[in-house]
Design a protein around this nucleic acid. Structure first.
Length: 456
RNA sequence: GCACCGAUAGUUCAGUGGUAGAACAUCAGCUUCCCAAGCUGACUAUGCGGGUUCGAUUCCCGUUCGGUGCUCCA
């Protein structure tokens, strides 16, 4: 059955995965909260990332850097200057344009990049640059849209205390390059990973949690010797794609997309996205692997006057490492996993929603259900025993069939039923959501069984 | 940011310038017990703020949120 994006969103909102932010006050645009099920799923995604990129990687280590950083960081990287667009509106038809693009398109010989905002405005006025939509030349002033959120340290709002909410976690890794290298005694090549919130004042957010202003990133800055960057680029590209596949995403719904030279970010020599085919929306970026070269470390060296060079102990060579960055959005992976898992099963007279999460991602790995309330004690005891090791819920209301369906709708892979025989044979029935198979297992073996399912 | 469209229980949908209905869901009781059974009952809604009016959920204005298109996407 064809999946509909709106229905998936609706299911996520009504069943406790995601809520509209500050809803009782009318909400805050493009802000979402994660509910009881959502936070479990999200944590499981992050756990899977950490396992794959840090714990199972012989080269990588992790850090957790602060959201607020010395503003010098963002001046050095070019984010303060470049991370903003000079936008201009046509007074006649209200179309919005980028001032630099307008000039570039109509006067290809002019070097817009060297122009200040005032110079661009002057140029547009003097040369009667036209609005490509209506052809008139009547524009508002240029307004800078800096995408970095600002706040202040201290109680006074003096400009000296201006700080930014980080627009990417990456810089926490770059500025800690030396600390990590020294304290962990890592040799090039090695990587630093982090999971954390980033903030961007997007002009046009939308599509549920796909593009939001506050989001969570999982990034890795992998440092290698200049000249080896291309092969590492390919390595992390493949590694990242395999990671997504390990979350249960079908191969046919994933693809690589190389960035064209003109769409490359200001720091990047080459970028390749991995995209997912969202139902009803189309291909959307899930992660990007970028060759950031030595751009960041070099900028930080220049600005901080600190050496971030690496001394190769074998060759006694000194160099600034190149950096390959696989970067992905937790919220986008969340949405992708939910879309992939969502399924509407047609039955004879009605239908039911089934979320086919991989066991390691499911909000609840299992639930314990007493067949009738007579088995309540046994069932509770088993559940309390299992929650020491897994996320396991309990439900005793309504018929057993209805309870199975509830668990299907939130993607619980295993239902453990305590029945009339359990007190005698000390066994329970485990139902598999995907195969619908039921097996009878002694209570003492349930834990090992679930353990095994998690590994697969 | 601009233009257009929309907003009624948790969900899907009725309806009305004069007491807002249903189904499903949820909860409780009875009953049954391995895939949404049944019966009885309970809970819950006109996004927010103004205006017109004797009276507005309904008409008008603003706003918020969402959707679509444009623009943008480091």
């Amino acid at each position: 059955m064809e999946k509909k994006f709106d229905e998936i969103v609706n299911h996520l909102i009504t069943s406790g995965f995601v809520y509209p932010n500050s809803e009782i006050y009318g909400g805050l645009s493009n802000s979402w909260d994660y509910g009881p099920l959502g936070v479990e799923l999200k944590n499981n995604i992050k756990k899977a990332y950490w396992k794959k990129f840090v714990q199972e990687s012989p080269t990588n280590v992790g850090i957790d850097a602060a959201i607020l950083m010395n503003p010098g960081v963002w001046k050095a990287t070019g984010h303060v200057a470049t991370f903003s667009d000079p936008l201009i509106d046509c007074k006649s038809c209200h179309a919005r344009h980028r001032a630099d693009n307008l000039i570039e398109e109509q006067f290809p010989d002019v070097d817009v990049h060297g122009m200040t905002q005032e110079q661009m405005m002057e140029f547009i006025r003097d040369n009667k640059v036209k609005c490509p939509v209506c052809g008139k030349s009547d524009f508002t002033d240029i307004r800078q849209f800096n995408m970095m959120f600002r706040t202040h340290i201290g109680v006074t709002e003096a400009s000296e205390s201006l700080v930014y909410l980080r627009p990417e976690t990456a810089q926490g890794m770059f500025v800690n390059f030396k600390n990590v290298q020294r304290s962990s005694r890592k040799k090039i090549p090695f990587g630093i990973c982090a999971i954390g919130k980033s903030f961007r004042n997007e002009i046009t957010p939308g599509n549920f949690i796909f593009r939001v202003r506050e989001f969570e990133q999982m990034e890795c800055e992998f440092f290698c010797k200049p000249g080896t960057d291309l092969e590492w680029f390919k390595y992390w590209k493949d590694y990242s794609l395999k990671f997504l596949e390990s979350l249960g995403i079908g191969e046919k719904n994933l693809r690589y997309r190389d960035h064209e030279p003109e769409e490359l970010a200001f720091y990047s020599k080459g970028t390749c996205d991995v995209e997912y085919l969202f139902p009803g929306i189309g291909w959307g970026e899930i992660l990007g692997v970028a060759d950031r070269t030595d751009y960041d470390l070099k900028r930080h060296m220049d600005a901080s006057k600190q050496s971030l060079e690496y001394l190769d102990p074998e060759t006694n060579e000194k160099y600034i490492p190149y950096c390959i960055e696989p970067s992905m959005g937790v919220d986008r992976i969340f949405l992708m996993v939910a879309c992939e898992a969502y399924d509407v099963e047609q039955l004879e007279n009605d239908s039911r929603i089934v979320m086919h999460f991989a066991p390691k991602l499911a909000p609840y790995l299992a639930t314990v259900l007493p067949l009738s309330k007579e088995q309540r004690e046994f069932a509770r005891e088993l559940q309390l025993d299992l929650v020491k090791h897994f996320s396991v819920s309990y439900d005793e209301t309504a018929s057993i069939g209805k309870r199975y369906r509830r668990q299907d709708a939130i993607g619980t892979p295993f239902c453990i039923t305590v029945d009339f025989d359990t007190p005698n044979d000390k066994s329970v029935t485990i139902r598999n959501r995907d195969t619908m198979e039921q097996i009878r297992l002694p209570i003492s073996e349930v834990r090992a069984y679930l353990e095994k399912q998690l590994e697969e």
